[in-house]
Design a protein around this nucleic acid. Structure first.
Length: 222
DNA sequence: ACCCAGGGTCATA
DNA sequence: TATGACCATGGG
């Protein structure tokens, strides 16, 4: 995957030059990162911030407190994040598992494969949410693949379109080599870039990826 | 009024 | 394995 490596690094350099360091994950501390990872599922981050603020002001930004809340009360607190009934259940099942595993110290002793399996066993924690937690809360070298990543690299010509989550993740991880700091910034920059480009006219002249399309002389889109 | 957002689960074929 | 329905708020 050496040919990939060059392209993946070239895209990264362009994004970093255009947007600078993103300082992810926004928020405070590993547990808040994990809560945010669940709350942000298919949801704008601005809405997640309100929900986290409400949890914080209620003194409930804590696994035991969340676990003790009723579904209704928790749903009320996280209401601005959308899907509040679903996410209340997900947060509670996650906290139940988290406490049962002995908390962060205990989980941090697991190797990445075992930790990932554990996270994925929680109802409501899928591949991307688990990888958000692994990278941004546990600082493991796991590349997070989201809808923006797919869209961007399909437009750049590096993805055909039908690849599964794991295939894309392996592509990045084998192409870049294990590097927590790089993965952290790369995913954040992809999200940052997605917010910057016009969805209806992805090939705008100001695109920092102009000229990087793999299949021809075209412009790299958003 | 419409589209979208830092997904995941479950039922169905 | 692969679709589709469903979840729900807030901003553009």
């Amino acid at each position: 995957m050496k040919a990939r490596s060059g392209r993946l690094r070239a895209v990264y350099r362009r994004l970093f030059a255009a947007y600078g360091p993103q300082r992810w994950w926004p928020g405070d501390g590993p547990f808040e990162v994990m809560v945010g990872a669940v709350l942000t599922q298919n949801t704008a981050w601005s809405n997640v911030e309100r929900a986290i603020r409400a949890l914080s002001e209620a003194g409930c930004l804590d696994p035991r407190r969340i676990h003790e809340l009723t579904d209704q009360h928790l749903a009320q607190l996280i209401r601005p994040a959308g899907y509040f009934n679903v996410k209340a259940r997900r947060l509670k099942s996650f906290c139940a598992w988290y406490l049962e595993q002995g908390g962060r110290e205990s989980l941090a002793r697991l190797d990445t494969t075992a930790l990932r399996r554990g996270l994925l066993s929680v109802n409501g924690v899928g591949a991307e949410t688990a990888d958000d937690m692994l990278l941004y809360a546990f600082e493991r070298p796991v590349f997070v693949v989201d809808a923006y990543t797919r869209r961007l690299f399909e437009r750049l010509g590096d993805l055909e379109g039908g690849e599964g989550y794991e295939a894309i993740r392996r592509l990045f991880e084998s192409g870049l080599g294990p590097d927590v700091g790089l993965y952290n910034e790369y995913h954040a920059l992809i999200v940052r870039h997605a917010k910057a480009v016009c969805r209806k006219r992805p090939l705008c002249g100001e695109c920092p990826l102009a000229g990087l399309c793999a299949t021809g002389g075209g412009l790299g889109g958003g």
